[in-house]
Design a protein around this nucleic acid. Structure first.
Lengths: 170, 170
DNA sequence: TTTAATGCGGACCAACTTAGTCCTGTTTAA
DNA sequence: TTAAACAGGACTAAGTTGGTCCGCATTAAA
């Protein structure tokens, strides 16, 4: 499935809500009400985003959270990696030092490893080119994602087999 | 972390090993010995790949597994989705029907959803452009991944903050 | 000065997922 | 007939995740 954790999903929803508030701050309570995310989880996610430097917080009465910089300057990769570590499909290729060489017991025989670095960078590039501001735009009219503007065809994929094993998982 | 499951990782390692064998078949036992992956797991993964149509199996004595088609015609997306469902960062955008509309309780308020479709397709494109044959090539000299050849800079990312929350997760 | 609202930093738990093991068929070449 | 190999389960242990809760520190306003 290759999915993000729910918390990261929450984080993105909360950030877009916050971006819509412009320079005003919002309390965790307000954001919970506005998005439908349960308050304790909102709290936890916001704390994480604050720790990563994406949000600034004001404590005390009439406190709240605000973006630390304009939404245009917050790339999607940074949001994701703030909440669940470096964007990487495999442990071994993670640049953050998650697998400090030696963790993967197959390392000596693994002939695939070098390729993951490239693949991971590709995904990071695609995700990093998208900012929080893009996610706030009303209609998904995203360009410059690194994929040539092109119809729905699977591009240079010359095999006629329907991608994704068809019914196996549906 | 955004990672694949270990089983999928195994699957890819096993498939490359199998691709190296050309048109010969290999037994689960041989593959386990050749890759270092524990035999029961090898068995499980191969069964999955067989069910998805990526492998053909021959039962009985001197049986074994072989690729169902040339490695050049097996895109990476198909391998991944065979072992862990459709390639998608979120449940709600998954094309396989995993979340049959209504699963996500935030659906009515979620303003981000439309964007995920685009993001997911981007990643699918990048991954689908790569085949098993590419993964077998000795050196990662991969082109045409959909990302314009470009230096290591994170592209249009003008913020000075070190991506990935720095020490928080390392 | 007091009060109440708010974020901070944890500990904690239940549920789910994952990786791994094992067992009993069935098939098939020798 | 035999043994090697795949097929298809059930099962378990460990880890992760999502979610809850609590007491504390901070601060604006009454």
């Amino acid at each position: 499935m290759l999915r993000m954790s729910k918390m990261t999903d929450y984080g993105i929803v909360l950030l877009t809500e916050l971006a819509r508030a412009g320079s005003e701050t919002r309390t965790a309570r307000e954001l919970a009400a506005g998005t439908g995310v349960p308050l304790p989880s909102v709290s936890k996610v916001l704390k994480g985003l604050q720790g990563a430097g994406l949000l600034v917080s004001h404590r005390g009465a009439s406190g709240g959270y605000g973006l630390s910089r304009p939404a245009e300057h917050i790339p999607l990769t940074e949001i994701i990696s703030a909440l669940e570590g470096p964007v990487s499909l495999t442990e071994c290729g993670a640049q953050g030092g998650h697998a400090p060489t030696g963790t993967c017991e197959l390392e000596t025989v693994c002939r695939v490893r070098g390729h993951w670095r490239v693949i991971n960078r590709t995904i990071q590039d695609a995700l990093g080119r998208l900012t929080l501001a893009d996610l706030c735009a009303p209609v998904p009219r995203l360009v410059g994602l690194g994929v040539p503007a092109r119809p729905a065809a699977p591009a240079q994929n010359p095999n006629p087999i329907p991608t994704t094993a068809g019914g196996a998982h549906s």
